[in-house]
């Protein structure tokens, strides 16, 4: 069994990895809850408008805003450590890269020519 010297424990303690003890107030949850319901109404309403190519763009944009609200407030990422923020951001970044590369391959093939 390795033993932590008091010094080591101290170093671990001062690393900026620990959860902040921030408790999100129910008021903020309520506001986000209202915003999410509003977003749902907006996305249904927008789907009935003739926006051409912007219909799916508006739908995805509203969904992204709702997702970001959930992630930042319900999932506490706004109040989390930099490690958590970096993890979440890296995950979504990787996801975007994978989707982009898939679509790049899909669009750049000579469909029907081989």
């Amino acid at each position: 069994m390795s033993e932590h010297t008091p010094h080591e424990v101290e170093v671990l303690d001062t690393e900026p990895t620990h959860h902040s003890e921030h408790i999100v107030s129910p008021k903020i949850y309520g506001v986000i809850f209202g915003a999410l319901l509003l977003g749902t109404g907006l996305t249904v309403g927008a789907s009935y408008l003739e926006l051409g190519i912007f219909n799916p763009i508006v739908a995805i944009a509203i969904a992204c805003i709702k997702a970001v609200l959930v992630i930042l407030f319900f999932m506490h990422v706004k109040y989390s450590s930099r490690l958590t923020k970096l993890t979440v951001a890296a995950g979504f970044f990787t996801f975007i890269v994978l989707i982009t590369m898939t679509l790049t391959d899909y669009m750049s093939r000579a469909w029907g020519l081989w």
Binding site: H4, V9, L12, D13, T17, H18, H19, E21, S80, S81, L83, T84, T87, V88, G91, F92, T94, F95, L98, I99
Partner: peptide, 26 residues
């Protein structure tokens, strides 16, 4: 070393799991 470190570790692990879920649904 501390309760905060334990909490942070668990949260980090949970997020890593959720990232695999993002890739799954993705």
């Amino acid at each position: 070393a501390t309760v905060e470190q334990q909490r942070e570790t668990a949260s980090f692990g949970m997020w890593l799991f959720l990232l695999t879920e993002i890739m799954f649904f993705g």
